[in-house]
Design a protein around this nucleic acid. Structure first.
Length: 500
RNA sequence: GGGUCAUUAGCUCAACGGUAGAGCAGCUGCCUCUUAAGCAGUUGGUUGAAGGUUCGAAUCCUUCAUGACCCA
């Protein structure tokens, strides 16, 4: 439903609701509390399905069980009820010979969507459906809103995100994405914890939001009367922890970027950043492969799996190729010795890559050509290495080439999955690069990083060689759950509010 | 930002200038049966909003709102 008037799912008191209110009142008149406090069950639905999987059709047992959940369907005037809980579905069999006439009569006051708890014995029907012959039931919640129903119910994508509770009820497979997400994050933590990483939470509210190229959200602290930004990355604070002497730290946290919304972008999303002292980006690529291997093995269960229209293979090692070599490979232009800006502009023109004011250096042109023409080709997991220094203000200069940095990004299905560096630890170099960023910012580039003098002070106090990795958790979960949209892996994605 | 499409009953959709309809859901019955149960009957509408054209608009035009997809 996309209309914005009064007749919305959420607030329209319609005749269907009036029916339910009438039933609620009748229940109360019968002395039933429609909103009781507890119910103790003996089994989840799927436990019963598994336990009695060998029970033949048309068999009664005397095994008494208690289950509870939401009514999603009813057949033959409440003789058969489909009940769902978090684990799955079980059919209830309400035969008039097994229930008091009062309880039989009261079935008419139930609706699809209500919660009930039942007691009964296990049987399998003639038709082969495992069921519970109900001897007693109790209302656990009277629902006052009709659920969308029918074979094709609730297809509108926006409604599914806006009313996620309904999406989860109606499309039980949607729950699987969030279970997978939880498992993926748990496995990442397990891997990092077992490799002696310490999880530390860094601030969300910052005077200076740096660590990435992005516009921050702005807010205000009343008591201090200062403007604050929501963080766009956790990098600069995790590095302070390395400086402080923690040698392996990470954070899995929400970051906020004030940018557009798409199937791959949500304004708030979850990032993993980790930093480990005494390693460089080569070691970090090995580490990233190992960690992903562990996480994929314990979640997807296999290294080769389908994503949308492609079969991806995450078997180690992933392809490693430098950005310049990748352009040579896919575009047939060799930037190895090109240092002249006009020459780079000419190549971009020949390649039909339109440049903006932002592409004011050879390095930025190389980066844009890569993003436009090469990255979409990187379907199988590929490390792109050695980024131009102009687009990597927090990365150490490449040990063999001063125009490049020791940075990699991991691509799969043409999308960036991870971003890692040999972290820049030279305070003088870092200071100059942030000053360059500040110049860009004051020249109007709202995504350029601010000069953070506290961070420079920290790094001047001495930072060991360090490798640092960032992984967009949402995009990783998309890949591992075969989800086309980031909104399929964020329970409550950002939406425009409905107008009243 | 640009293009295309969409918005009609609780849900899924018809009707495309001439009486707003169907299936499902709901309700009333039948049927101790079922697997999207079935059968009979029945309720339910400010056609996303505002203007305009017309004897007549869900339908054509304009603007707006919201969304989906594609492109930057």
């Amino acid at each position: 439903m996309t209309n914005t008037n009064e007749s919305t799912l959420a607030n329209n008191l319609n005749r269907l609701q009036l029916e339910r209110l009438g039933k609620l009142n009748k229940l109360k008149e019968n002395g039933v509390n429609p909103y009781p406090y507890t119910f103790s069950r003996t089994h989840m639905a799927n436990e019963l399905q598994e336990k009695y999987s060998q029970l033949p059709a048309h068999t009664e047992t005397k095994d008494e069980v208690r289950v509870c959940g939401r009514i999603i369907n009813e057949r033959n005037t409440w003789m058969f009820i489909d009940l769902i809980d978090d684990s799955g579905k079980i059919q209830l069999f309400c035969h008039k010979e097994s229930l008091t006439s009062l309880l039989i009569e009261q079935l008419k006051l139930l609706d699809k969507g209500d919660f009930i708890g039942v007691t009964g014995t296990i049987r399998r029907t003639k038709a082969g459906e495992l069921s519970i012959r109900v001897s007693d039931y109790t209302v656990l919640c009277k629902s006052l809103q009709p659920l969308p129903d029918g074979f094709d119910a609730f297809k509108d994508v926006e409604d599914r995100y806006r009313y996620r509770h309904l999406d989860l009820i109606i499309h039980p497979n949607v729950k699987q994405n969030f279970k997978s997400r939880s498992k993926i994050i748990a496995e990442i933590r397990q891997y990092l914890d077992s490799h002696n990483f310490l999880e530390i939470e860094t601030p969300v509210l910052l005077v200076s939001a740096g660590g990435a190229d992005a516009r921050p959200f702005q807010t205000h602290h009343n008591a201090l009367d200062i403007d604050l930004n929501l963080r766009i990355a956790t990098e600069l604070y995790l590095k302070r922890l390395i400086i402080g002497g923690f040698e392996r730290v990470y954070e899995i946290g929400r970051v906020f970027r004030n940018e557009g919304i798409s199937t791959r972008h949500n304004p708030e999303f979850t990032m993993l950043e980790l930093y480990a002292a005494y390693g460089d980006y080569n070691e970090l690529m090995d580490f990233t492969e190992n960690m992903l291997e562990y996480v994929i093995l314990n979640t997807v269960g296999k290294f080769q799996f389908e994503y949308i229209d492609q079969m991806l293979n995450f078997t180690r090692p992933f392809l490693r190729i430098s950005m310049i070599d990748s352009i040579q490979k896919y575009c047939n232009y060799d930037f190895t010795s090109i240092t002249n800006f006009d020459e780079a502009v000419e190549i971009a023109r020949k390649l039909n890559v339109p440049l903006s004011k932002k592409e004011d250096s050879v390095g930025r042109i190389i980066n844009l050509i890569f993003e436009e023409l090469v990255s979409p080709e990187l379907i199988q997991p590929t490390f792109i290495t050695d980024y131009p220094v102009e687009v990597s203000p927090l990365t150490k200069i490449h040990r063999f080439n001063s125009r490049l940095t020791e940075r990699f990004e991991l691509y799969a299905y043409g999308r960036e999955i991870a971003n890692g560096y040999s972290e820049l630890t030279d305070p003088i170099d870092q200071k100059n690069r942030l000053l360059d960023q500040a110049k860009l910012k004051s020249a109007g580039d709202e995504e350029a990083m601010p000069y953070d003098k506290d961070f420079i002070y920290a790094i001047e106090c001495g930072m060991p060689p360090t490798m640092g990795l960032g992984i967009g958790i949402d995009r990783l979960v998309m890949l591992l759950t075969n989800s086309a949209s980031i909104r399929d892996v964020i329970a409550f994605p950002t939406l425009k509010p409905l107008s009243d």
